[in-house]
Simulated scan of single mutants.
Amino acid sequence: MSLDTVAEDIKDDARDRAERIRNEADERADEIVAEAEADAEEIRAEREREIERRIEQEREQKLSSAKLEAKQKRLEGRRIVLEDTRDEAESRIADLSGERREEVTRALLDDAAAEFDEGDTVRISGRADDADLLESLVAEYDGFEHAGEVDCLGGVVAESDASRVRVNNTFDSVLDSVWEDRLQEISTRLFEQ
């Protein structure tokens, strides 16, 4: 074999080895690129899912906040309507007059009188505008006297030192009691849906 042939065989082997190395390097480069693209796709997909989760969380938070705000406004509106209704009731009660006012005041005085022992000195107070009415009603009871005025819509406050009893039968106290006992019913009637 000649030196040229050996040199040519070495060159061919070197070229074959270089071609194999290049092919392996290209395959490895393709694998690395494919892995990198897969990783990039996975990262992109995860980021998209995270962004979608954040968007959904924000949407839920804003929706929840809007619902809460709407509920608060609805409750505030109901509170205002209830206050207006209460004010209207107080106004109508304060405006009772004539026989109806006398009838209601007499019933409240009768109820208060039942709380005292016979022979007690009982002082009756009421609204300043009802002084004449109270004077005439108190005259019907032994030991009762008109004692002046209290700030109220009407009715009576009865007191006796002897029995240490104080009965608040004012229109205000009756309205407070009825209002408290019937608030749920009042709300239902006002805000039926």
Score class of each variant (00 low, 15 high):
M1K: 01
S2R: 00
A7D: 02
E8C: 07
D12W: 01
R15P: 05
D16V: 15
D16Q: 04
A18H: 11
D30Y: 05
D30A: 15
I32H: 11
I32G: 04
V33P: 03
A34W: 02
A38L: 04
D39T: 13
E41L: 12
E41M: 08
E42D: 01
I43K: 12
E46N: 07
R47I: 06
E48H: 11
E48F: 08
I51Y: 11
R54C: 07
I55F: 07
E56P: 05
S64A: 13
A66V: 02
L68A: 08
E69G: 00
Q72V: 15
K73L: 06
R74V: 04
E76N: 06
G77Y: 09
I80K: 14
I80M: 08
V81Q: 15
D84F: 02
R86T: 04
E88W: 13
R92E: 12
L96T: 07
S97A: 10
R100I: 05
E102C: 05
R106Y: 03
R106V: 01
A107G: 08
L109H: 02
E118G: 05
V122C: 00
V122D: 02
R123G: 06
D129H: 11
D132S: 10
L133Q: 01
L133H: 00
L133R: 03
S136V: 02
V138Q: 01
F144S: 12
E145M: 02
H146N: 11
A147D: 01
G148C: 06
E149R: 01
V150C: 00
D151N: 10
G154I: 04
G155A: 15
G155K: 04
D161M: 11
D161Q: 15
S163W: 02
V165C: 13
N168G: 01
N169C: 08
F171R: 03
F171P: 08
D172L: 12
D172M: 05
V174F: 10
Q184P: 03
I186M: 11
I186A: 03
E192R: 12
Q193S: 06
Q193Y: 09
